[in-house]
């Protein structure tokens, strides 16, 4: 029983083992569904030379953006890195290496990494700067480039509810990259809003089965909104 109890009770414990130079895969899209407390713990620990794989890099002062303040990230794979002045500055000064990666390719790199598939062919990026230097193959008259899978030393994930076995469900569009990230970490840490009793989550509704998850922690979240758009009602 204890062997399947993945709960930890402090963020220090949740990120135990992270070291400078490691690769971290993070879930989230913009500021939606980001593991904000796990990121804060990485900042607190002061580890540096991190390679980060994430769709975006947060904003100034929130999300992965906080790891830029002490220059903890040396390289990032992302599809879009706007909305962050400090990031732009570090990019222009060559203080951070940015590997821009098409969003679907990034999701598939994580998915493939977690599924033990070392590489895949995709039409995305063929004939563009993204395809340069990559192997090209033709299938049924169309050109595809070879993209390699990605894994991380750590995957940091934000879920909605989990049980102690590490089964996780996500809420609304806070799902995004989180399920793929969860499969692709040597150590996968999931922070959630609520840990429930085993059996409370409907088995057929689980998004991330516990087999992928090493540590679960319950936290509280700011959930900052990037672009609040409303209609009159």
């Amino acid at each position: 029983m204890a062997g399947f109890d993945k709960r930890v009770y402090s963020y220090e414990e949740a990120m135990a083992g992270i070291e400078s130079g490691m690769t971290v895969i993070a879930g989230g899209f913009g500021l939606c569904g980001i593991p904000e407390n796990l990121i804060a713990e990485i900042k607190r620990r002061g580890v540096t030379d991190l390679t980060v794989i994430s769709n975006n890099c947060g904003v100034d002062g929130f999300g992965l953006g906080v790891l830029l303040e002490d220059r903890q990230i040396c390289k990032i794979y992302a599809s879009y890195v706007g909305e962050n002045a400090l990031f732009e500055k570090q990019m222009l000064n060559d203080e951070i290496e940015v590997v821009l990666t098409p969003q679907g390719t990034l999701a598939e790199k994580m998915r493939a990494g977690g599924a033990g598939i070392p590489a895949f062919y995709t039409a995305t990026g063929y004939g563009t700067p993204i395809g340069e230097g990559k192997e090209v193959r033709e299938f049924n008259g169309r050109h595809y480039i070879l993209e390699e899978a990605m894994t991380g030393d750590f995957a940091i994930v934000k879920g909605w509810k989990a049980d102690r076995y590490g089964n996780v469900v996500y809420r609304h569009t806070a799902q995004n990259f989180n399920p793929m990230a969860a499969t692709a970490g040597k150590i996968t840490v999931v922070e959630v809003e609520e840990i429930v009793e085993p059996g409370e989550l409907e088995p057929s509704q689980i998004h991330t089965p516990g087999i992928y998850v090493d540590r679960i922690i319950q936290g509280s979240f700011e959930k900052r909104i990037e672009k609040r758009t409303v209609r009159e009602g």
Partner: peptide, 21 residues
């Protein structure tokens, strides 16, 4: 769907432009 009313705004519900929807 449409943009939310002030009461419906949910940080977990955004579109690809990162707008609340």
């Amino acid at each position: 769907g449409r943009f939310p009313t002030e009461d419906e705004v949910d940080p977990d519900m955004i579109n690809a432009g990162k707008q609340t929807v």
